[in-house]
Write a protein that binds this DNA or RNA. Structure first.
Lengths: 241, 241
DNA sequence: TTGACTTATCGTCATTTGTACACTATATTT
DNA sequence: AAATATAGTGTACAAATGACGATAAGTCAA
């Protein structure tokens, strides 16, 4: 790819990276998109991490996030929001992490502490979803099952979830990016319960939906379920506020 | 000062800076704390900016923010919250800014784009308030009167105000850092009106105060005002939630 | 001393919003 | 036809919100 060839000649900024937290919802649970580290043989290495990388010296932060996500997962045109920078003194002190970095970027001098700017995107997760690029083996991992990751990526994910919750409280429409185009009231309720970490009364939740002008009921219903079929709703962005 | 001497031997990270947005309220309006650039003779230079500077390679971001604020204003123990990173491609491309930076830090190579992590703190502003250090001429400037500043500092201030508003909507107790220990309902209302950019009904606002358990009425009243004296209130942190 | 003026404080009423709670409806499977 | 699994609905009370008018407590000037 032309873009990749050009990038070889760009200077890497060894002090700043971006990390992308993609949170997905499949109707059941929240997941996060993780990739594998490349070029590391030692099995002892913790080789799962967020899609992220060092940026180039002359590269816009937002653009860097999009580029890195595309390079590692093949995903394009993903709307990413910056939510926090991570710059603890010891965040890149683990030899596993520093060694990997130095090899990957062919760095001459040992890596200093790297400040990472974290980005968030909410995605619908389709079970049969394929990634355009499998080079780094991107895959969705349920957030509740995420173990230790490289660097401080576990903490970054926790902060992302906190951010989602706060932002949803301010403006719930933000969450509809996680739902499929057609969704049932039950799916929506499940999502809200996961995000707010509490359960909602079914009847009151229906009332709540009824007074959201941007959630419109469709004529269509579920098919092939072994019980009463639920009505589908859709999110109409144009009816927000 | 010992700290300063030691700092001379630390390595500067030429790619990452911190900027501190201190927002103050004096009972009338919101102000922001600005400092003067040092060591620049050319009068054409736009020499007012936020207190901020490059960090050291091995320095925690949060610590860097506190250190820089202390070095530029003398203020200590200020609670700073990180709210956003700024990393536009061209944010350090203005020759005025780059020249100043290169001289200040005695940099050998020209500065690349610098990613800046912005921090926020809310302060009560006392008209007779003195700064422990006047080296960089720190002073409060009403936000509505802020003109063009160095770098993208104007934009950083705008983002800070947006952040304050969002965060206050989530949790209004956050705003009490802006009010003096004793304050009147009118002062509090004025502040809320500035932050939310709309006016509130005086009577309903009193009701709103009455049902904030953390705002407690004092016996004390205003003195020397040419009309009925207003009651003082105080904020009791322990009664939040 | 009095009345004009200014700002503080309190009260009412209508409306909206939040919350607790139990039964009927519809589709599939056996 | 019965079992079962989930969808969908209404009512009553409490609490919060918002629009508005009336009264209280000071200063100031005549």
């Amino acid at each position: 790819m032309r873009q990749d060839i050009l990038n070889c000649y760009r200077t890497v900024n060894p002090h700043v990276s971006v990390d992308c937290v993609l949170i997905g919802f499949d109707g059941e649970q929240l997941s996060v998109l993780l990739v594998k580290r490349q070029g590391v043989v030692d099995k002892d290495f913790c080789d799962t991490k967020l899609p992220g990388s060092l940026i180039y010296v002359d590269e816009d932060l937002d653009e860097a996030a999009e580029r890195v996500l595309t390079e590692l997962t093949g995903l394009k045109n993903v709307k990413l929001d910056q939510f926090k920078a991570f710059g603890a003194k010891d965040r890149t002190k683990n030899p596993k992490d520093t060694l990997w970095l130095e090899r990957l970027h062919s760095l001459k001098s040992p890596v200093d502490r790297i400040v990472s700017v974290a980005y968030l995107s909410l995605q619908k997760v389709d079970r049969k979803m394929m990634f355009p690029s499998y080079k780094y083996e991107p895959c969705w991992k349920p957030v509740k099952e995420v173990g230790e990751l490289a660097f401080d990526h576990k903490m970054i994910i926790d902060e992302a979830l906190l951010y989602i919750r706060n932002r949803a409280e301010l403006n719930p429409t933000f969450l509809f990016a996680l739902l499929p185009k057609k969704f049932t009231a039950a799916q929506m309720r499940k999502l809200f319960e996961l995000v707010y970490d509490k359960s909602f009364d079914v009847r009151n939740f229906h009332k709540r939906i009824a007074q959201m002008p941007y959630v419109v009921a469709l004529d269509e219903k579920e098919r092939g379920v072994p019980h009463r079929a639920a009505r589908y709703y859709k999110f109409d962005k144009s009816k927000v506020k």
